[in-house]
Write a protein that binds this DNA or RNA. Structure first.
Lengths: 338, 338
DNA sequence: CTGAAAGCGCTTACAG
DNA sequence: CTGAAAGCGCTTACAG
C-alpha cells in the first residue's frame, strides 16, 4: 500500500505539500498540485483511513445498532429495508456503516464502549431492545444518535406514524359502510399499541362500538395463526364484516379462513392488511392496506444524523413522524345499507 | 475519551508499561498489571481502534460487499439471512463488519480502493454483480476474500448446492409416481441454471421425458406472475400432475391457479416450492420444498475468512458446497399407478 | 520488571 | 508558495 511519503519522494516535494495538494489547499501552485494529483493516480495512492481518523478525530464511519435476535433485525423485512436505505444515503454523504456489537471476540464490550473503541462519528439505532440498559446508555451518550420508531429525550428520532396510518385505514373501512370491523393485531410492541389506538380512535370518532372479542392478539407474519384466529372470528354469532390482519403476509391467512368457511372473500367478508408490500399484491384480490415508507425512513434517518454530525450546534433533538399512506385495493366491499 | 497517557499518569507508570499490562505481556509484575487494569476499568478506558490499527496494520474489520440495487441485497430475504449469520459469527471472532461502497461522498472510489482506504483485514462478497469489473478486481486482489454462491479461482467460496437440492426434490416427486412434472423457474442466474440442471438430471436419471413446455421462465418471489404461468400449464392438453414453483412465496400463485381452475390442490395437482421458509409453511397444505441452509452459509463464510486472515499461509482457495435438505410436506400426492 | 524512543500515516499551525 | 516539526494514540524492539 503506497503512502504519502513515497508520493512525496516521487514528486520531489515535501510530505506537507503533498498532503495539502491532495486536500485542495489554496496555497499550493497549480503546477505542484497537478503533479501530485497525477502521480497519486498513477501510483494508485489512497489515504489510510486509520491514520487520517487518528489525526482528524473523525472517522467518516457510522455505527448501526441492529439486533439480530429471534425475529428481529436483518431477518425482518421492514428493518432490512430501512437499513438498506440508510446505508445508501449515508454512502452518498461520504460515510461508511459498521455494525455495533456488544462483544468483540471473547471480550465483553458494551455498545457504548464499542462506539468509543471505533470512534464512530455518529450512531443509528435501527432496531434494538429499548429497555436494555446498554441501549439506554448509548442513546444518552455524547454521540450524535438517531433512533428509529422509538424516541429518547436526547436523540433525534424518525417515527413511522402507525397511529395515523391505522386510523386512516379504519376510517376508510367505516366510510365503506362497515361497523363490524375486527382487528387481529401483532404482539404488543409500541408499534402495535399505536396501531390499536389508531383503530380505536377511528371507531370512537365515528361512534362505532367495538366488542371486546373483535380485537385479538396474534403474531406478525404468521399466516397460520392468523388463519386460526380469523376462523374464530368468523364462527362468532356476531360475525365481523371486515377483518384487519396484522400485516399483508398474514392477510393470506384471513383469506384462507374465509374460503374454508365456504364464504367468499370481499363479497361476504372484507379484508385489509398492513405494510403495502408489492410482493403481497396478489391472492386474487388487491389488498387494501397501509404503505409504510420504509425507504424514506432510512433515508431521513441518515440525513438527520449527518446533519447532527456536521452541524452539532444547530440541531436539537426532534421527533419526525413519517406519514403512512392508504393503498386502496378491492378487498374491502362497499356496503349499501348506509 | 481517555487515553493511555492519562492512564499512565494516573497509575504512575510509563505508557509502555500500561500498554503491556493491558495486552497481557508476561514481563510485567502482577501488582502493576492489576493496578493498571483496575484503573483502566475505573476510568472507563478503551483503546482507540484507529491508533491501534495504524500501528498493528490490522483493523479487525471485515468489508462486506452487498449490492442493494433493485431486488437484490438486503431487501432479499435469502441474502439478509446470510449476512445476519455472517455478522454474528464474525463478531464472535472479534471482527466488525463494514459495508463496501464504490463511492464515498462525491468521490468515486472503486470497491478495491475502498477496501484499501479502510484497510480491511478481509472481504466477503455476499451479493454482487460478478461480471462487474470492479468486483472481479476485488476478488483477484491481495485481500483475503470469500465469495458466496459464486466461485473465482483465487477466492474461497461457499456455494449453496442448488443442483443437488433440486435433484433431491425432483427425485422425490418422481418416486411418488409423478412423471409429468413442470418447473416454473426464476430468472436465469447461475443459481437458477444449477437448479434447472438438477431438475433435468433427475428426470434423465429416471428416464422421464421432459416436454419443452414444462420448463418455463418466471420470476422469483412473484406470486402474481407465477399464477399466470401456472394457469397456462394447467390449460395444456397434457397437463402436469405436479408443478414446482420458483420458490415458496410463488407457490401461493400455483395454488391459486389450481383453485381458480376448479381443481383441488394435491388431489388433482401437486405443488412443490423452494426455500423452506417457516413463514410460508401454511396455505392449508404443508408445502414440500427444499430448505436452504442460509444461516450456515453465513457462518461458514465467516469461519473461512477468519481462517484465511489469521493463517494466510495454510489456507488455499476452496469451494465449499453447502447441502440443501428436502422438507417433505403433504403437497405432493402419492400416485398409485406405479 | 520498567521505561525512553521510534514509528505507524496522516494533517496543520508556523516559519521562511 | 514550500517544508520542518509536532502530534494524533498506540505498540514494541531495545536498553537498563
Amino acid at each position: 500500500m503506497i503512502t504519502i511519503q513515497e508520493l512525496s519522494k516521487q514528486c520531489g516535494v515535501s510530505v506537507s505539500t503533498v498532503s495539502k495538494a491532495l486536500n485542495g489547499y489554496s496555497d499550493i501552485s497549480d503546477k505542484t498540485r497537478e503533479l501530485v494529483i497525477k502521480t497519486a493516480n498513477e501510483m494508485g495512492y489512497f489515504p489510510n483511513a486509520n491514520a487520517r481518523a487518528l489525526k482528524l478525530k473523525k472517522t467518516f464511519n457510522i455505527g448501526v445498532l441492529f439486533t439480530t435476535h429471534t425475529t428481529m433485525g436483518l431477518r425482518n423485512d421492514y428493518f432490512a429495508h430501512v437499513l438498506s436505505a440508510f446505508k445508501e444515503e449515508s454512502a452518498k454523504k461520504g460515510y461508511d456503516i459498521t455494525f455495533i456489537e456488544n462483544y468483540i471476540g471473547r471480550r465483553k464490550m458494551t455498545y457504548l464502549e464499542h462506539c468509543q473503541f471505533r470512534h464512530f462519528d455518529g450512531v443509528c439505532i435501527v432496531c434494538a431492545d429499548y429497555e436494555d440498559q446498554e441501549v439506554v446508555s448509548l442513546a444518552s451518550s455524547d454521540f450524535p444518535v438517531v433512533t428509529i420508531d422509538y424516541a429518547f429525550n436526547k436523540t433525534n428520532s424518525i417515527i413511522s406514524d402507525n397511529y395515523g396510518g391505522m386510523k386512516q385505514l379504519t376510517n376508510y373501512i367505516i366510510q365503506q359502510g362497515h361497523t363490524k370491523i375486527a382487528y387481529i393485531h401483532g404482539v404488543k410492541t409500541l408499534v402495535t399499541k399505536n396501531r390499536i389506538e389508531g383503530y380505536l380512535s377511528a371507531m370512537a370518532d365515528n361512534k362505532v362500538k367495538v366488542p371486546k372479542e373483535y380485537v385479538i392478539e396474534g403474531l406478525y407474519r404468521n399466516p397460520v395463526l392468523t388463519e386460526e384466529l380469523a376462523a374464530q372470528l368468523l364462527a362468532m354469532p356476531n360475525r365481523p364484516t371486515c377483518i384487519i390482519a396484522p400485516d399483508d403476509q398474514s392477510a393470506v391467512g384471513v383469506i384462507n379462513a374465509i374460503r374454508k368457511q365456504g364464504l367468499q372473500v370481499v363479497k361476504d367478508v372484507s379484508v385489509a392488511g398492513y405494510d403495502g408490500l408489492e410482493s403481497q399484491q396478489m391472492i386474487g384480490v388487491r389488498l387494501t392496506t397501509v404503505k409504510q415508507e420504509r425507504d424514506n425512513i432510512g433515508k431521513e434517518a441518515s440525513r438527520r444524523l449527518v446533519e447532527m454530525i456536521e452541524n452539532p450546534q444547530e440541531t436539537s433533538p426532534e421527533k419526525i413522524f413519517m406519514k403512512q399512506t392508504l393503498l386502496i385495493g378491492n378487498s374491502v366491499k362497499k356496503l349499501h345499507h348506509i
